[in-house]
Design a protein around this nucleic acid. Sequence first.
RNA 1: GCAGGGGUAGCCGAGUUGGUCAAAGGCGCCGGGCUUAAGAUCCGGUCUCAAUGGGUUCGUGAGUUCAAAUCUCACCCCCUGCACCA
Length: 938
Amino acid sequence: MAEYIPQSTEESWQKAWDAANIFHAEFNDDNPTFYCLEMYPYPSGKMHMGHVRNYSIGDAVARYKRLMGFDVLYPMGFDSFGMPAENAAIAEGGHPHDITERNMASITDQIKRMGFSYDWRRLLKSHDPQYYRWNQWFFLKFLENGLAYQEFAPVNWCNSCNTVLANEQVKAGRCWRCNGPVIQKEMSQWFLNITKYAQELLDGLDTIDFPENVKALQQDWIGRSEGAEIEFSVEGRDDKISVFTTRPDTLFGVTFVTLAPEHELAQRLVEGTDYEKDWKTLHDEIVIMSEFDRIKNMGKKKGVPTGSFAIHPLTGEHVPIWIGNFVIASYGTGAVMAVPGHDERDFEFANKYEIPIKRVLVMTENASADSALEAAECDLGWMVNSGIEGFDGLYGSDAKSAVCDALEKKGLGQGTVNWKIRPWLISRQRYWGTPIPIIHCESCGVVPVPEEQLPVELPRDVVFDGKGNPLESSATFCNVDCPSCGKPARRETDTMDTFVDSSWYFLRYTDSMQNEMCFNPEIANHWMNVDFYCGGIEHAQMHLIYARFWTKALRDIGLHNIDEPFNELLCQGMVNKSAPWCDSCAITLNVSHSGNSCPHCDSELSERSAKMSKSLGNTVSPEEMIEKYGADTVRLFILFAANPTAGMDWSDSALEANYRQMVQLFSMPENILAWDGDASGIDLWMKARLKQRCIQWQEAMDNYDLRGAVDASHFDLIKDINWYRRRGGANSSLGREVLEVWTHMISIATPHIAEDWWRLLGHSDLVAGRVFDTPGPLDSDELAALDSEAYLRSFLEQARKVAKVASKHLGGEPNSAVIHISRPWKRELAQSAIAHLESGENIKIFAKVLADLPFAQGDMRGEVMGFWGKRMLPQIFKWSDEEKQIIASSLDEGNVLRVASDFICSDLGLTGIDIESGVIDVGRSNTAIPLAPSIVYS
RNA sequence: GCAGGGGUAGCCGAGUUGGUCAAAGGCGCCGGGCUUAAGAUCCGGUCUCAAUGGGUUCGUGAGUUCAAAUCUCACCCCCUGCACCA
């Protein structure tokens, strides 16, 4: 028998696929399309298990859709700009370009070894000038329509990366990439006004199939809050203070106004007064802090008075103006109307500085307006103490809009919506990214690079010394003539955030084999949007928001007509492996501590599953695993070990088990093709079972339940074949039929072995390039065959249980049995009860119906009625739909067992069985009920 | 605090339109067949008891129902994100 040696066959099948061009996606207007995409990977030098899992999932989906007759677009490429390559260039010398190309070549080899069905012709790489020129082109378009702009602003600055960061790239006050501290710095920067699309980004979430948690993350990030912008004038000055609040209904409770220390008015209010010194102290303390540290320190509320007063827009009251450390300049207007009676933070602040607290809401209707406030009452309530006619008694949104209306009439405020999402800062002071196509001219100012001069390419004559922006070291790059006036000018040296690259790559894939335009709108519209997008949850807010924004922005400059780039998003779970865990320190340790005690507290270590990571040392190299077991085994393990969205634990023993499964599968065609029998009674069952498994497999795949699909194709069918053989089946032509269908089913998860099978079946084409002619639905004969076999199997299971008990009583192994099928009236009873139930009647009145049935008359009445109440009533509900259907069907229990009696005897080790059915008087064996005959051994 | 997702047998994990559920499948473990033998494979078992039956199980407690892993309420715990956000 041939041996399973995937190492020697897999690569040749990969070459065969390649040579046959079967993964090339072509534009056919009439065919149904499917766009399957995995998140644009950064080309590190090595493929890791996360990649393997991601692509194994995507590839199975792509192959499935191809089998089902779709034109499948399934491309691959590299998000190849970014700081790791530049940092490597600084650390080890060399150039980011060369390092990137080297890494790409090596990871590409590894990806190809897995046999994924990509259309490699469409390969993208961000650092290709033919790619990033379009980033520049889009930027110019955005500049034209005002979506891109430059602003001098305080920004997040990462010292170790030497660049600014977008807000969402700052995690817990630290750089998302290097984890270094982030400080605030004022710089002139380029922004894209993503806030213009905030509402659409929020609404769009309802139209796409993203997981709930991703939707929640995006909603949080977009951060819509509805409220009012209200203007307070300042006593004795022309200045106005504009505040944003979500609670205009509490406006009458304002007892002070608070400004951010760096609010431009703050300084002017205190200048030259006694209050200036205190303000200066607070201000200086605040401005050096990162936003994160400020928020962290908000627990310690600090404030200084200004000595000035603001004028309440509706009542005209004068309230003091304070400066507080808890107000952030960049959020809203940098000023807060403080309502201590109904806001916890203001309550605390007012108490600390002895500012009056006023009740303007009550929490129950008609409650006393004078009751004391023990704490801030922050829920919605009924307005009281408004001091102006027409507000008291209003609640919730009525209260809010009444206040907004009043403000609007006076021109001092209006209802408005505030967003947490802020303009996207795209400037980066690094080399390895898309140069921003701008020229700074002393006389003309900021001049866009003319379109025909694109791309602005990255220069090679650059010094990577880790000091400042390397682009500034290139004279050839920086010195340029102004396109407008021709005088010497200087190029912008900022490059774009690399999230720009991944914001439209999926559009480029649809038409990446030309350099005339970014993509042809007709072609993009044909393939888009992405039907199935698979990747990690870590991109839930950055990439997945930017890409949605970019898609809408390109739509609005007329490049396509797609609203949302991704339809179904699947976030694959982590790949974990156990690592030492200290329960008392609550930390996971590097695997080098395995078997030792905790290095911190010396207590005993246990094991816990943790995300594979270099720092824990619990990684598994895909390369080694492929080398050892072959790509198909790794793929099978990955898909079978857990559902795509669940975390999965790496297990060497489970991997070995899957390898054995592959070995077994490999031998299947040879075994089956050696069958030399003729048609037999069990053939119908085998045919039906094959159809059933195929349906199960299709349903699972349609729901992206890859585990369920693999279960049917790689595990269940083997068991079915075994059963068929046990039941005497060996029909050679049926065997071939099974294999033909089965090969298609295994080809999506383990494509190489599927080709082995296909070749053994005598085909000269490739199964990977086929459309699957599925066996279709089950007919009634096939359903009956499934029923009778299911009945037989459950009978055997029961008979074995009983045999155990019986041998105790008999004092030895039984050698024969009498099987009593339930008496005919019991089946009739069951049938009428099921019919009764299914007609929608209440089961409780069935006893009356029963009393009129023919078999419940005379002497039998007592027994029948008793049996109904005690035994049959609960049983009716225990039967499955399938079993109920069998009972209602024409299945003849006695006949099924009689036909199979030889098989039953050999299976139970009996010399003979006697089957009694249709018998009225069965003596002591009256426990039999439909589908559960009684068995008496002797 | 708010939001989203979870808690199922030794472990992993399916199952949540109430009855198909003592609960799929995998791993582990045990027994048997095959084999000179090992591995692989095949068959069976794997909550519990006085066992063709009964008892007790699906985070905890209560409730609805003829019937609850599944529905309702409260609580506990875990993961993820947001957070003195105006």
